[in-house]
Write a protein that binds this DNA or RNA. Sequence first.
DNA 1: GCAAATCAGTTGACATATCAACTAATGCTT
DNA 2: AAGCATTAGTTGATATGTCAACTGATTTGC
Lengths: 141, 141
Amino acid sequence: MRTADLIRRLVGSVVEPHDITVQQYNVLRILRGAGEQGLPTLEIAERMIEQTPGITRLIDRLEEKKLVDRKRCEEDRRRVWCRITPTGIALLAKLDAPVHESLSSLSTLGARDLAQLVEHLDRAREGVHHALATNHEIKSR
Amino acid sequence: MRTADLIRRLVGSVVEPHDITVQQYNVLRILRGAGEQGLPTLEIAERMIEQTPGITRLIDRLEEKKLVDRKRCEEDRRRVWCRITPTGIALLAKLDAPVHESLSSLSTLGARDLAQLVEHLDRAREGVHHALATNHEIKSR
DNA sequence: GCAAATCAGTTGACATATCAACTAATGCTT
DNA sequence: AAGCATTAGTTGATATGTCAACTGATTTGC
């Protein structure tokens, strides 16, 4: 968790001077990856690295900055499609290199160690995920 | 970072029903570890897992709940000693077992893998730490 | 021995996060 | 087809986090 916090702050130090938070950056990355059509609001929430219940207002703020736009889905009028705007794409393009470069600091670990680290974290996450789900079940009785 | 977020939420699901946040729990653990005399405010901040500039008010809230008390240091009147109260100790005692148990979900990894994971994270952190420090230097010019 | 710099901590203004209650649309059931 | 449950998303109240400016205490340099 110490390491995650440091990485968060490292990425923050790169993106925040451009007036977006790390979470907003994460949303933009997700939407860029999602392509033309975009994604419904709660789909974005599910893909976030840090889970956040405040997804609506997070995207409100991105919309205010014209980095994202939204429109109601016609087939299912409960849903809202969110898309990254050209301005958003341009901002990400500017950030790609510096973010990537800042994360190169992780290469204090070699490729092999890094791969193993990721694999271990994946396995750890499974265990924790299971514990959280169980915990939640118990609470909801 | 996904894994860290999950663990954070797992610990949160254990401690939050007792009306403290994960960060507050972290402060209490630090103060219990610090013993009788306690610690000056900013010393606590340095030892936190997630760095937080809002340490004063975080401790304000713990003080309101009578889990912590404070007094000015006589030798250096700028400083404030923070100590965990008996109520705080009692709360931690109640939480020790459930927190420990919830974290046993990490034993999807064997002891050896876990040790290696920690070592890799430590090394990763060094790299990131260095990058952040350098980054900060550049900014402050 | 005194001004300037530094340090420990606090405060105010503001941004963001969180939780529960809500609206509107759709799906399911009989 | 009516009624209830579910789903997608929003909103309001409130708690917490964040940044910069500040106070008061202690060092440091000259």
